[in-house]
Design a protein around this nucleic acid. Structure first.
Lengths: 215, 215
DNA sequence: ACTAGTCTACCGACCGCCCGGTAGGTTGGC
DNA sequence: GCCAACCTACCGGGCGGTCGGTAGACTAGT
């Protein structure tokens, strides 16, 4: 949940105002995540950070800008903590594992911003939405390219890279809907399980994966 | 999109009024799906069916009741077209295939109601929400039980049935976010691909699935 | 040390708008 | 004449957003 604080660190003037702004983004992301963007009022956010609505407007330009800021931050997070590390990996199979593991880990650590990223697109202004959608498409293409590379190596047969990429993304993003940090499973267990499933889902398993003796 | 019409057929008095009511549900589901429940006004729905807001209220009790009706219908759909057919299948592996195939097919045919079912839960009254969540949990448990049966047969090793069930559900539900009926892929292709991936994701693949010669 | 001015960080009150919902008609087919 | 199937007109309320202030920290001049 403290991940949004890095917004403050990244900007030049690292003073109290930036701390406050980061706190606002962090709370807004949490509430948007829990109640949904449209069901959340500016008053809700203001109250959560101990301000009045008018006071909050000293820090933000508007509700839609706030949403766009959170979603841009989430995309930055994805770029830095998933795509960049994975780009450095040459072997497609290892790269796929890196993508799934890093993405799943990010979601178990702080799902707010990343979940808003996929659920509240229609709340944005058309221009902002196009910006975010472009970046999302780049990510899916990155995964699809990795699957295509695996196919070229002969490790995957008969799988459409686009369908494969979308399916893996769905599996990963869905984690935020059921995983609870205080639940039965440790975050790293979940990350490992999902990574194993994802790899198994796309890798070529000779001609048949059943072990039935009767065939 | 005509699936909600069966609401009319299911109720006793199958006259013109029921046709109109079904048309309202169908349009409401489509708009809720496209814009989200909170971002959709009663006026939007009324206009879509060629009525004024007051005219619409002749048919519905309120916005929340409308949402609950749509979600209940979606759960009925899931029960009848996924769970019931799958329950008749004894072999766990075939049953899993049946679940994924039927569910994925349902989504490619008409994703509106089924997608609202998972995205707009917080729009319901607490009592209604509990009702829907119970039914959803039953579904996930049904899949998890199937995975547990596969594990008992030795076809799956080292996979937590709950994580497996959730992951498969995520993969399936995500289809509604990227599949377009007018796109490059045929619905049945997508259904088949996703089913293959889902089965591969959970089935035991001896000890290693790579084909690298260097190991 | 004292004061005058300035600026940051807020608040109370308010605006226009649109929301979900309703009261009380009106109309056309039987 | 009656009733199903609508409509026009309206309500209270909450929304996103703005305006005019102001307490208090800080700075500068004397």
């Amino acid at each position: 949940m403290t991940a949004l604080d890095s917004v403050a660190l990244r900007t030049a003037a690292a003073n109290g105002e930036q701390d406050r702004r980061a706190e606002i983004y962090r709370n807004a992301a949490r509430i948007f995540h829990r109640k949904g963007y449209h069901a959340t009022s500016i008053n809700d956010i203001a109250a959560a950070v101990g301000l009045t609505k008018a006071g909050l407007y000293y820090y933000i330009k508007g509700k839609q800008d706030l949403l766009f800021a959170i979603m841009s931050f989430a995309m930055d997070q994805l770029d830095e903590q998933v795509i960049e590390p994975a780009r450095k990996v040459r072997d497609p199979r290892t790269r796929l594992e890196t993508i799934v593991t890093c993405h799943a880990r990010l979601i178990t650590q702080d799902s707010s911003a990343l979940t808003i990223l996929v659920n509240e697109l229609e709340g944005l202004l058309p221009g902002d939405r196009a910006d975010i959608i472009d970046r999302q498409r780049d990510y899916v293409d990155f995964i699809a390219d990795t699957l295509a590379a695996l196919r070229d190596e002969g490790k995957v047969v008969g799988l459409d890279p686009t369908v494969g990429a979308f399916s893996l993304v769905g599996m990963i993003l869905w984690i935020s809907r059921w995983y609870r940090a205080d639940g039965r499973l440790e975050a790293e267990e979940v990350v490992a399980e999902v990574t194993r499933m994802a790899v198994a889902a796309v890798l070529n398993r000779s001609t048949d994966q059943t072990k039935d003796p009767d065939r």
